[in-house]
Design a protein around this nucleic acid. Structure first.
Length: 932
DNA sequence: CCTGTCACG
DNA sequence: GACGTACGTGACAGGG
């Protein structure tokens, strides 16, 4: 032993790869005693230990080293200054762990090597060459494709994560060429991660094809004129210098000047005291124990962490027993329940109906609960016959109180201001009962309580809440109704089954109410619930019931016109493709574009299908006529299927209007969502789409009035981040995007171009969304480095924004939540996640307080609106995040605008005094397009 | 039922 | 050196 020779086996561990794997695989652990981040070090040690221990017999190393990168500037940067310029900065909590991984390597008594100005890959290459020349074997522990050029002649790679050896065949699988061709393929294909340019439009597949055909890169470039495909030929000729540069960047250096020899890398046993000392210092309990046991020595003592807090006990309820519920079949029984509700002052209520659309469904029965465990169901319109009876019968089942008689008794209770009606999603029940002449009030809503308490943690459906907070599985509605084609409506459900299901819902709702009510105060969200959730229910119920008039003829005419245009486009597309296929199938389209027609740039997603999104087709449109036609076809298809066709189906035959339904507890940020139909995404951005808004009309003698907040999110950002220059600009009524552009690019306002302003606008929006170089680059279609430079300059000019972002993330990490200015809590359980999810969570955490504050403001305005406009002949119809749409008699348009504008502009008061004014723009017209 | 695509703020 | 990438939604069509 000692001298490296033909029986030697050198293992070279790619240290940086180990560290990053460890960092991304583990949660962000910190050292208990002082909070030092040590997750990556912990993972690194475990991987190192497991690797060394796992190698025995033929695989055991005689020589071993861990190789690290050193410094960020290497000789490759001298050749090409953009080399690896795309790399993201090292995460903050990883940086301090880098020196610790060197110490860990030394503690394991393994050689630890790095060299200024060279990448680890070059050291690995040099050592591999030396070992191979000495007749020994080499295993490179890495899965980095850049190292694959070294494989062969006794050199193999080993992917420690997948526990897979990579030999010549493995390299061929990855690159389509054997190791000696890898450099050539990489030179052509380039690498976006390392920013190796390569040849534009040529990927690994094409590159391998070319290298295999011509033998080598040099031969290929020499004989480029012979290539048949004109575009490919021109690319190779035009980019020769760039390809040759790429080759120099990609080729690893086997002559790195090293100040040590292979013999210095001889494998040594770790020294127990040294290794255990280091592990104990890091406070790795499990690993310290495992290695102590192996050495048969006592483990060093590591102080224990303080005990975790114990959660507060949940209130105790009797077991939920559906068999014990009452079925109310007589007026006397009903009166008894009503009397008890009056006496208690609250009652949980739930309605059962024939469908989910409150505007069309019929009432079937009502359930009530007043004390946990005691609940009743009042069947009202159940039909005879059962699920087996295909058509059932329209005759009422026996033993039910007549509908009207029951409602007459219930109405005084449901409208009694001194009795709280508790429901889960009360808007549904309130709307339904309103159609039967009952205006339910006052209400409490367990769904909204959960939303205020647990927004961002989970959904707020009753089944989920029962499971999570009561440990109870509710009876699934599927058990009663079935599903799919054979699904029945609730009035066909047997009354005995209905009692169990319906009364349970009321019981569960009451229990959740008892549980949540005191928690609102403890969690400091009482004001959120009381001022921004609960009072919104009747407001939305009224808007939804009002609906908006939609002109069927206008839609129908547009549908026909779209259909004609689409048919024309379809014919052209098939002609251009030389084949007939379904244009609406992304799968078929992808195959036509990339397989049949052979266009470049086909990328397959995880399902194996080519991506054919608008951005990709947009890029292809410069090369071929077909993608543009498909884009046009898609636009029309969308407009027709989602709007001009579907909206007609949503016109209520009784009212002649479209009634959307708002989801109050759907969006994590506090925004509303609109469903069935969604009236918050009616087209406006393109001329053709905008015309759909002409179908949304006012009644004769009335107008539609639209009022929308101008730049509300940017104003909120200026306020919360405390950016004086932005605040002043808003006070002065300046063009905020132009002002941003002027500040960033040093262009005077009077010399502003639309292009510069557009870029500044994209950055402003990016900031609200938790900007990233990648995202901005994609949005502006500019190189990532350029986008990053914009962001850097923006943060330089507006350092307060950067501080706000960092502070928000830090707050989210400390508290697992963020808050709006009005105290709405948005939980961020993913903020501690690792990997891509961490990025999502961080950006969502930055965005949530801004989007959420804007959502709070418009909610407050909506809640005040009914009183403010009570004396005007006007109705509030729709909300579209920053816009409210009204229908108002012609003569009152100006009054309405004046009143509603005041309400909206003053909606933050008195809870929050913004440093910037809120500005509302208004418009009026006979249709929504004209009002905008 | 899931995925891709695309409409909105 | 990597699993992915600007925030928040809902509806529709295709395809297994």
């Amino acid at each position: 032993m000692g001298t490296f020779g033909k029986d030697s086996h050198l293992h070279l561990i790619d240290g940086s790869a180990f560290i990053f794997r460890a960092y991304h695989a583990l949660p962000p652990l910190t050292r208990k005693s002082d909070g030092l981040p040590i997750g990556a070090v912990s993972g690194f040690c475990n991987m190192l230990d497991r690797y060394v221990e796992g190698k025995t017999g033929d695989d055991a190393p005689t020589h071993i080293a861990v190789i690290f990168d050193k410094g960020s500037h290497t000789f490759r940067n001298d050749m090409y200054d953009l080399y690896k310029a795309n790399r993201e900065a090292m995460p903050e909590d990883l940086r301090p762990q880098m020196p610790l991984t060197r110490r860990a390597t030394e503690a394991f008594n393994i050689a630890c090597k790095e060299l200024e100005g060279y990448e680890a890959d070059d050291i690995i290459a040099t050592l591999s060459c030396q070992a191979r020349d000495a007749g020994g074997r080499v295993t490179i522990i890495s899965s980095d494709k850049d190292l694959m050029q070294l494989v062969g002649n006794g050199v193999e790679m080993f992917d420690a994560m997948k526990n897979k050896r990579i030999d010549r065949e493995g390299v061929f699988e990855k690159f389509g060429v054997y190791p000696e061709g890898v450099v050539d393929v990489q030179s052509l294909a380039g690498d976006s991660v390392d920013n190796v340019p390569g040849a534009p439009g040529i990927g690994v597949k094409t590159a391998a094809l070319l290298i295999n055909e011509y033998g080598s890169l040099e031969a290929l470039l020499e004989r480029a004129e012979e290539i048949k495909q004109p575009k490919r030929r021109q690319t190779l000729i035009d980019n020769r210098a760039q390809i040759e540069l790429s080759k120099r960047l990609v080729a690893l250096d086997c002559n790195t000047p090293l100040d040590f020899t292979l013999d210095d890398l001889e494998a040594r046993q770790p020294v127990p005291e040294t290794l255990l000392g280091f592990l104990a210092e890091m406070e790795f309990r499990t690993l310290t124990k495992r290695i102590s046991d192996r050495f048969n020595v006592d483990a060093p003592v590591i102080a224990d962490a303080p005990a975790a807090e114990t959660p507060a006990a949940a209130p105790e309820f009797p077991t939920i027993a559906p068999d014990a519920y009452d079925c109310v079949r007589s007026l006397d029984d009903l009166d008894a329940w009503i009397a008890q509700a009056h006496e208690t002052g609250w009652v949980a209520v739930d309605t059962e109906t024939t469908g989910l659309n409150e505007m069309r469904a019929d009432l079937v029965g009502i359930s009530m609960a007043i004390v946990p465990g005691k609940a009743c169901y009042i069947p009202l319109t159940h039909k005879t016959g059962n699920a087996d009876d295909l058509f059932g019968s329209d005759e009422l089942a026996e033993g039910q109180i007549p509908l009207q008689a029951a409602l007459d008794r219930l109405k005084p209770l449901l409208e009694d201001p001194s009795v709280i009606k508790i429901g889960q999603n009360m808007k549904y029940d309130a709307k339904l009962l309103s159609r039967y002449g009952v205006e339910v009030a006052p209400i409490d809503d367990t769904m909204l309580m959960s939303y205020a308490l647990h927004g961002g943690e989970h959904g707020h459906g009753m089944d989920l809440l029962a499971e999570k907070y009561l440990g109870h599985q509710t009876i699934p509605i599927k058990d009663l109704l079935g599903s799919g084609k054979s699904q029945i409506t609730f009035d066909r459900v047997g009354i005995d089954d209905a009692v169990k299901y319906a009364a349970e819902d009321a019981d569960v709702t009451l229990r959740l109410w008892h549980l949540f009510k005191p928690q609102l105060h403890q969690a400091k969200v009482t004001r959120v619930y009381e001022t921004m959730e609960r009072p919104l229910v009747p407001v939305l119920a009224k808007m939804e019931m009002s609906g908006i008039k939609v002109d069927r003829d206008t839609l129908s005419r547009m549908s026909n016109a779209f259909a004609q245009k689409m048919a024309g486009l379809e014919a052209e597309i098939h002609e251009l493709a030389g084949a007939s296929f379904n244009v609406g199938s992304p799968k078929q389209l992808g195959e036509i574009l990339f397989d049949k027609m052979g266009l470049e740039g086909g990328k397959k997603g995880k399902t194996g299908a080519y991506a054919t999104g608008a951005d990709i087709l947009e890029d292809l449109a410069t090369e071929h006529e077909l993608p543009r036609r498909v884009l046009d076809w898609r636009q029309l298809s969308k407009l027709k299927s989602t709007y001009t066709d579907a909206l007609q189906e949503h016109i209520n035959p009784e009212t002649g209007r479209v009634h959307t339904s708002y989801v109050i507890a759907g969006a994590n940020t506090g925004r509303l969502a609109s469903t069935d139909p969604n009236l918050q995404n009616i087209p406006v951005r393109t001329e053709e789409g905008r015309r759909i808004r002409e179908a949304f009309v006012s009644e004769p003698g009335k107008k539609l009035v639209s009022l929308d907040y101008s730049q509300i999110e940017l104003r909120i950002l200026a306020h919360v981040a405390g950016i004086d220059s932005l605040k002043q600009a808003f006070r002065d009524g300046e063009d905020i995007h132009a002002m941003t552009a002027s500040e960033m690019f040093n262009v005077p306002l009077d010399q502003m171009t639309p292009e510069i302003r557009r870029q500044a606008k994209a950055i402003n929006f990016g900031v609200i969304y938790g900007i990233s170089g990648f995202g901005l680059a994609r949005n502006l279609r500019i190189p990532r480095a350029e986008a990053q430079a914009f962001i850097d300059r923006y943060f330089e000019r507006f350092p307060g924004i950067k501080t706000y972002m960092d502070d928000t993330i830090a707050f989210a990490k400390d508290n697992q939540r963020v808050e709006t200015l009005f105290g709405r809590v948005i939980h961020t359980p993913e903020i501690a996640a690792k990997g891509p999810r961490a990025g999502f969570a961080r950006r969502a955490a930055i965005n949530a307080p801004i989007q959420g504050t804007a959502a709070d403001i418009i909610r407050r305005a909506m809640i005040r609106m009914p009183d403010a406009i009570a004396k005007l002949p006007a109705k509030m119809l729709l909300q579209v995040h920053d816009e409210l749409l009204f229908e108002v008699s012609d003569e009152a348009v100006d009054d309405l605008i004046s009143v509603a504008k005041d309400v909206m502009e003053g909606a933050a008061h008195p809870v929050v005094h913004l440093d910037v004014p809120l500005v509302v723009d208004a418009g009026a017209g006979d249709n929504w397009a004209a009002a905008h």
